[in-house]
Simulated assay, not measured.
Amino acid sequence: MWRYIGRKLGIYTITFVIAVTINWMIPRFMPGDPVRSMLNRASVSDPEALERMSDYYEGVFGVDAPLHEQYLNFWAGLLRGDLGISAWLYPEPVADIILRAVPFTLGLLLPAIILSWIVGNYVGAFAARSKVLDNTVLPVGYILTATPYMWLALLLAWALGVVGGFFPAAGGYSFALTPSFTWPFISNLLTHWFLPFLSMFIVALGGWAIGMRNMIIYELEADYSNYLQALGAPRRLIRRYAFRNAMLPQITGLAVQLGTIISGALLTEIVFNYPGLGMLILNALNNRDYFILQGAFLFVVIGVLIANFIIDIIYVLVDPRTRVQMTGGAS
């Protein structure tokens, strides 16, 4: 088991280095200059003063050094927990800006991922047992899984926010309130959170329901199910085995879908002007601040890798066949 974990850690470490390197490279090939953009917002009109300020801030941000030095300095700062200084919100550290947005993104992502996976699996399992429910779940599931996150977010914001007025259509909380651990603020926070969460939950739900429904039907038609049925095993027992075996591909699917779900969360945040990483990335793009872009994408990369690593370990614990192969009990 520990050898397996060590091997996986090695693979994920290599993946992390490659992903972070690509994350460092992409913003530097984007058009625009973050220092010039910052000075343009300051309305500096004197060419000489602009040139002197540009030289100064290039030194502050370290963009005047050769690319290989910038890359080494980036890794040195990353190992210290220093992600640099924002050009858009100068002189605020990038790490502080990201830490303000991360709780909103995690508070949106984790409930949507976990609840849609749990509910979708159970709905798909029940659909495989009932023809009436199957005729309803299957077409609805296909429609939901083909629905773009952004389109559904726009539809919910318009129907339940603008027209219905049941929930706020934008923002993370009312600006009339001061963030605090009080019931008025928490309830206001939840009302702003509900529509972004609902849009992500509904889209993901359809895919998990279809996947589980198909896997249950496949397992119920497998040889071991027919053999148990011929032996007179209770139908409940056969379904229990089928459900347990069908869960294994769903766990793998959760790891595969994490990147898609996170990208959907970022788009959803933009639609609802939700103050998470999605809005932060959009503002960083608009202001040519690739220091924030690096930090935001770095968090996404780390989050996806950690989640996939945890799912890999859970898969080993859930599937006895994997543990047997790891101990050399199977050829």
Rank of each mutant, 00 (worst) to 15 (best):
L79N: 07
Y90I: 09
V162I: 12
E48P: 01
Y12F: 15
E51A: 14
P31Y: 02
S116R: 13
S180N: 10
N245I: 08
A209W: 00
L177Y: 02
I216C: 04
L67P: 10
Q325M: 10
P31H: 09
P66A: 11
L228Y: 04
M1Y: 07
A233H: 05
A233P: 00
L190H: 04
Y315M: 12
M25K: 13
F197Y: 08
N283Y: 04
L160F: 15
G172K: 06
I26E: 15
N40L: 13
S116A: 15
P148Y: 13
W75K: 11
S263G: 07
W2V: 14
R323Y: 04
L79G: 07
V140R: 02
D33R: 05
G59P: 11
E51Q: 06
I11T: 12
D46S: 11
Y57K: 07
S199N: 03
L39W: 00
F74W: 08
D82N: 15
P103I: 06
Y218Q: 12
T147E: 11
V132C: 00
N287V: 04
V304C: 13
A255G: 15
R321T: 07
I314Y: 01
R288T: 03
P320Q: 05
M212K: 15
I314T: 12
L280T: 08
S263P: 01
G232W: 03
N308R: 05
L282V: 07
Q250I: 11
A246H: 04
N135R: 15
M200E: 03
V60M: 12
G141E: 00
G206R: 05
E58A: 14
E69F: 04
T178E: 14
L293G: 01
W24Y: 15
D134C: 08
G172T: 08
Y227K: 10
S331G: 10
I281G: 00
P148K: 13
L115Q: 11
A19N: 01
N273E: 01
R240V: 06
L195Q: 01
R52L: 10
A242R: 01
P91E: 06
P275A: 11
N308I: 00
I270S: 03
F104T: 09
V123G: 02
V256Y: 15
T15K: 12
D223K: 11
K8P: 00
A307L: 06
N283V: 00
A265D: 00
Y315C: 14
R244D: 12
L220G: 04
V324Y: 14
G59Q: 14
I270R: 08
I5L: 14
N308W: 01
Q70K: 12
I98K: 15
